Amino acid sequence: MSIINPALERPELIAYFLGANNYSWLHFRNGEKKLLSKPISYLEGRLPGFIRVHKTALINPDYVQSLHRPLRQKMAGKIQLQSGETFPVSRRRWNQVAQSLGEHLSPGNNEEPLQESVYLDDARPTSEQSNLGRSVASLFLVTSDEQNAFLARQVITKNWPDYRVETIPKSIHLPELLDDLAQSELPVLVFLDARSDTLERLQTLQRLKNDPRLCRVPVVLLALPTDKSVIEGYERQANSVITMKEGDMAFAQVIDRICQFWLKIAELPAHC
């Protein structure tokens, strides 16, 4: 308790907490972090003014920069901190979070809540215009390269119009995002670009494959062309590992070729 109590006595120094089973990471506003031997539910009880945006994140409302409403129904909004970090807002918690943050944000930053929804990309594929009103299968792409994300969205929208592509720059919250979806809304395929943020991507891969509900979603790992990267990917149960150099100009074409196999040749599991 020597770390926990002094920290909780100065909540103005705290940015947020991230839960990790029976432990929590405490992130200070100055960038430091500490591991606490308490679950996030305990911390939520000790800090009633903090806001639980999803089941693993507890945010200091005074550190929030902006709140962004969901882009679509059955997707989630996002919250941005003063540091520039972003967190998804669980669709089940959206209205409560928006209401709680109303008094902490300026009118220009606080957006009006919409229907329930998971923060993903900031671009809506044009193919969705013809898919409104019916369920659309989705593909998830995790990459920190905005240019690659844009090109991948373009090629998938053009060549695979029956699928919606969702892109996110970080994978750390991906298991929680997917866990918040109904079984029928789970993606048919996940791409994890592990050429950067490698450890984060591998840990996410392992969490997905250790989850009895999410483990059946096929995960393609994009890795650097080294034996170590390939071995680590398969050790964590990637469904396939594709090697590429960083800055590869053919990224979108590789994504398209992977889709050719997984969406046309392979038999994908039914989520219903």
Rank of each mutant, 00 (worst) to 15 (best):
D197F: 12
V254Y: 03
S138N: 06
L101E: 13
K264A: 12
L222T: 02
S184L: 05
Q65H: 14
L120G: 08
S135F: 11
Y63T: 03
W262I: 10
I265G: 00
D179W: 13
P88L: 04
L26Q: 01
E166K: 13
E235K: 04
A15S: 15
P218H: 08
Q237K: 12
E112C: 08
A182Q: 12
H68E: 10
T157C: 02
K228A: 09
E166D: 14
G49W: 02
P161A: 05
T167M: 06
R195N: 12
R236E: 01
L26F: 03
N60T: 03
V136G: 01
P39A: 10
G31A: 10
I172L: 13
N95M: 11
Q96I: 05
V97L: 05
R72M: 13
F261E: 09
N131V: 01
L174N: 08
R164K: 11
N148K: 12
V254A: 02
P169K: 13
V136L: 12
I242R: 00
I231V: 09
L35N: 03
E32G: 12
D162P: 01
G84Y: 10
E246C: 08
D62V: 00
I4W: 02
A57C: 04
L268S: 11
A57G: 00
G49P: 06
L205H: 07
L214P: 11
S83F: 03
I255Y: 00
D162N: 11
E232A: 11
L181H: 07
N131R: 15
E146S: 14
V118D: 05
Q129P: 00
A252V: 00
F17R: 06
N22A: 11
R10P: 00
I59E: 06
R213W: 09
L178E: 09
H104D: 14
P70E: 09
S2W: 02
K34P: 03
N60Y: 03
R153A: 08
R29W: 03
T143H: 13
R207P: 03
I168E: 12
K158H: 15
R46Q: 15
E44Q: 14
N110Q: 15
T204M: 03
K55Y: 04
E267Y: 09
L186C: 05
P113S: 03
I40N: 10
P107V: 13
P175R: 14
P61G: 05
D121W: 09
T56L: 02
G49N: 10
R93H: 13
Q73K: 15
D211G: 12
Q73W: 13
Q99S: 15
F191L: 08
I3L: 15
L202W: 00
L205N: 08
V64K: 04
I168Q: 12
